[in-house]
Simulated scan of single mutants.
Amino acid sequence: MATPWTTADIPSQAGRTAVVTGGNSGLGLATARALAAAGARVVLAVRDEARGAAAAAGLTGQVEVRRLDLADLSSVRAFAGAWTGDLDVLVANAGIMAVPQARTADGFELQFGTNHLGHFALANLLLPHVTDRVVTVSSMLHRSGRIDLEDLNWERRRYSATAAYGQSKLANLLFTLELQRRLTAAGSAVRATAAHPGWAATDLQSGSGSRLKDAAMAVGNRLVAVSAEHGALPTLYAAVADVPGGSFAGPDGRLMRGAPTLVDRSAAASDDALARRLWTASAGLTGVDLPASLPH
Results as ranks from 00 to 15, higher is better:
V243R: 04
G207S: 08
G198H: 00
A200Q: 11
H196K: 10
V226R: 11
D214C: 08
R222H: 11
A215R: 11
W199G: 01
F248Y: 15
E229Y: 06
T235S: 13
G246A: 07
T193A: 12
S210A: 14
T193P: 08
V190G: 01
Y237D: 10
A232R: 05
S206M: 13
G198Q: 03
G231F: 07
L204T: 01
S206V: 08
D214R: 09
V243F: 04
L223S: 08
L236S: 06
G246D: 02
D214Y: 11
T193N: 15
A215F: 10
G220Y: 10
A239W: 03
H230G: 05
L212Q: 15
A238R: 05
A192N: 05
Q205G: 13
L223D: 04
Q205A: 09
A195V: 02
P244V: 03
S188L: 07
P244R: 13
G198Y: 00
A192V: 05
L223G: 00
T202M: 06
D203Q: 14
A192P: 06
E229G: 09
L236K: 10
L212R: 15
G209K: 11
A200L: 06
S210D: 15
L212Y: 14
D242W: 12
L212H: 15
D214S: 13
T235A: 04
A238C: 12
G198F: 04
N221V: 00
A200M: 10
G187H: 05
A215L: 12
T202A: 11
A215D: 10
V240K: 04
S210W: 12
A238E: 07
A200Y: 04
G246N: 01
R222N: 12
P197G: 10
S227W: 11
E229W: 09
G220H: 09
A238T: 07
V226M: 13
A241Q: 11
R191M: 09
L204P: 00
H196E: 11
A238G: 07
N221Y: 01
D214K: 08
G246E: 02
A216I: 15
H230N: 13
Y237K: 05
Y237I: 09
G245M: 04
S210K: 15
G231E: 02
A218L: 00
A215K: 11
S227C: 13
G209T: 12
